[in-house]
Amino acid sequence: MILLDENTRAIVQGITGRQGSFHTKKMLEAGTKIVGGVTPGKGGKEVHGVKVYNTVREAVKETDANASVIFVPAPFAKDAVFEAMEYLDLVVVITEGIPIHDSMEFINYAEELGVNIIGPNTPGIASPKVGKLGIIPMEVLKEGNIGIVSRSGTLTYEIANQLKNNNLGVSTCVGIGGDPIIGLGFKEILKMFNEDEDTKAIVMVGEIGGSLEEEAAKIIKNLKKPVVGFIAGKSAPEGKRMGHAGAIIERGKGTAESKIKALKEAGAHVAENITDIPKILMEIL
């Protein structure tokens, strides 16, 4: 397992909102240690048996939390992330629609502090052994030894389900987020999986736009574990925005072809379709 393990004690920022409340219940049902929630002005209330605090500082002091998952609306998300980073090691930012300059500010600060940020605009992290931080549906995950790292939430769930249907399981599943500016990317997560004793192979789900996959290819060359890659959006025309803010092809850069070529040259096994992923894994494991 990486990032999320049995020692993770998480708070939920924005716990009293509709999304925060709904997903707190799901995270608790998955076995996650949710030890507190934070909504300014709502301190003292409870959500699904979880005590709400006015500030992260209060929550951490009382609960000894070491992680946060953020459901705070986009206009207020930056302040919530800055507050979390002062006290916690891991911050998972589920919120979508955060202005890019806000994300740049908190991600630069996270690098200075050495805090791990996942997201923004991410489905989060899930490990079948211990639970989840975010919105990944646990019913698609089976416990196993394959690490998944992905830019696409929906494809993540579909691929995890494909693995489950083929009796293959997941060690940890990480959605890095689909925005142009994100915290931990493919490179960092691949390195973590490479050192993780619970992970025997890695599935990397990329998409058109940006250069994250090409940068990841440089890391893949030196990994001791096999990587199966898949690139979504092969049929997208140049200049067309596809789903995520980060998935746009500009002037021939960020195409599916360039990414697939880089991955293959790095020694990754590249699947043409997501249904091929389980077959490739069964051949190489």
Rank of each mutant, 00 (worst) to 15 (best):
L3W: 14
N7E: 14
G14C: 04
G14K: 04
I15W: 01
I15S: 01
G20N: 06
G20A: 03
H23M: 05
K26N: 15
K33N: 11
I34R: 15
P40F: 00
K42V: 00
G44M: 04
E46N: 12
E46P: 00
A59C: 04
P75M: 08
A77S: 08
A80E: 01
A84Y: 02
Y87D: 02
E96K: 07
P99Y: 06
H101I: 15
D102I: 03
S103K: 14
M104L: 09
I117D: 03
I117R: 09
P120W: 02
P123L: 03
V130W: 15
L133Y: 13
G134A: 06
I135Q: 06
I135E: 03
M138A: 09
E139F: 02
G144W: 11
I146N: 11
I148S: 10
S152W: 08
T156E: 09
T156L: 15
I159C: 10
N161C: 01
Q162V: 00
Q162I: 00
N167W: 07
K187A: 13
I189H: 14
I189Q: 12
M192T: 05
M192D: 11
F193C: 09
E195I: 01
D198C: 00
K200A: 10
K200W: 01
G210N: 14
L212K: 13
K225T: 09
V227K: 13
G229E: 03
F230S: 01
I231H: 06
A247K: 08
I249R: 14
G252N: 14
E257G: 01
A262F: 07
G267D: 04
A271K: 13
A271W: 10
A271N: 05
N273P: 00
I274Q: 01
L281H: 14
